[in-house]
Design a binder for these strands. Structure first.
Lengths: 229, 229
DNA sequence: CCGCATCCGGGGCGATACTG
DNA sequence: CAGTATCGCCCCGGATGCGG
């Protein structure tokens, strides 16, 4: 992208990640290390040469990097650098802001990737209550189920290869339409009983702690009405 | 902008604010209510028709709105809506992320607007220590000085009409090159004595509390090395 | 099959001129 | 002052090709 040529932090940041597709590339790399093709799978409609250009730009900016995975993986992979990962809290904030645009569920023309809910999970689970220090949840779906693991009060979100899940190790399993699961994470569905199409399975105590985990998110962080208040 | 047509919060957000110039327009409106020309002043190089289009898009999206100011102001003004202001914490996060790109000072080709430091101030002052509940600081410059007012532990940042400042009401006055002032806010200049070109004036106790205010910012919020860790 | 490079319309963008 | 109008140009989107 053309630089804005402004001595302003916001403009400088946009010079790096303001290009079309750039943040969606970073989203894909945030979910897992990717081959070129893996990234393209998450960006339907992007021109191939454009993706190549973006990868050059992002690596040059120190946001992503190329590396060779150990055998038997033949293709080179891309991953986020430390600097790239530092950007994620910003993206989670944007996801929270945009949540009102998600409430009606997907439009017929919308592309969907089940793994994207892992990104939303990171955005909406912002705090771990002390008595939820150990808990394992599976957001189950036909393809790309997502595992939320809390250990020592630290959350780790991973993509689950389908049916890899040893259900013995899971405390809670959530099944149902993806946008219902999203509504659960974002707090729009907060009733204490499973809502309609949503199936929440697990021991009673585990489910209680899961709900407490979700309740810890508050939309807050509002800016007061005054100018730059 | 063409919609990404993805059922993903990040993509949905970018559909609204991912266009070129959009976030810089929001920056200008965050600093003060603006006439059309005021916005354009902060976006050198933007085509007039393009700005008009962006304003239509942003008002349609409920991020900004047009309104008629009371007399004697003749021209219609733009301001952020509540929804637009909710976006500011995200932009502040981006400003913090991009700070490493600011350390060397402006490039010769860079445009500068002194008011932009007000935006940075909001980004880097993230917490108010309890004993700094009352404090008034002026970031002084030839044009567009910025006032940081803390009252009841709440920070308010305002643009000061030049020489409007009644210095009697100011606890601390900071003078010096803009990017030195920025370095002070972001913590790169944290020495206890005024650095070279930077002049920090005020009562000893006020300056001490001012430094404590700045020290409250920590770059933190890092994401661990694991994927979506 | 994967990782691009190339080619080719179309439209968004940059710059300027113009109008109420 | 607040936009609208016009015109290149280049970036982007879509398809194809091709070497590893």
């Amino acid at each position: 992208m053309r630089s804005y040529q402004q001595y302003c932090g916001l403009a400088r940041g946009l010079d790096v990640i303001g290009d079309r597709w750039s943040l969606l590339i970073i989203r894909e790399l945030a979910l897992r290390d990717c081959r070129y093709t893996d990234i393209r799978d998450g960006l339907p409609g992007i021109a191939s040469n454009l993706l190549a250009q973006r990868m050059r730009d992002l690596t040059a900016a120190g946001v992503a990097e190329r590396f060779d995975a150990p055998p038997p993986i033949a293709a080179p992979l891309y991953r986020l650098t430390r600097h790239g990962r530092d950007l994620l809290p910003t993206l989670f904030a944007l996801v929270r802001w945009a949540q009102p645009l998600m409430v009606g569920g997907p439009e017929p023309s919308d592309i969907e990737r089940n793994r994207w809910i892992a990104f939303a999970a990171r955005a909406f689970i912002t705090e771990i209550p002390v008595d939820v220090a150990e808990l394992t949840i599976l957001l189950d779906q036909p393809s790309e189920p997502v595992r939320l693991g809390i250990s020592n009060g630290i959350l780790t979100v991973t993509l689950h290869a389908a049916s890899e899940s040893n259900e013995k190790l899971l405390d809670v399993v959530v099944r149902g339409p993806l946008w219902y699961q999203l509504g659960l994470l974002s707090g729009e569905i907060s009733g204490t009983k499973p809502e309609g199409l949503l199936d929440i399975a697990g021991r009673r105590d585990a489910i209680r702690r899961f709900r407490k985990l979700l309740a810890a998110y508050r939309p807050g962080d509002r800016v007061r009405s005054g100018v730059l208040g």
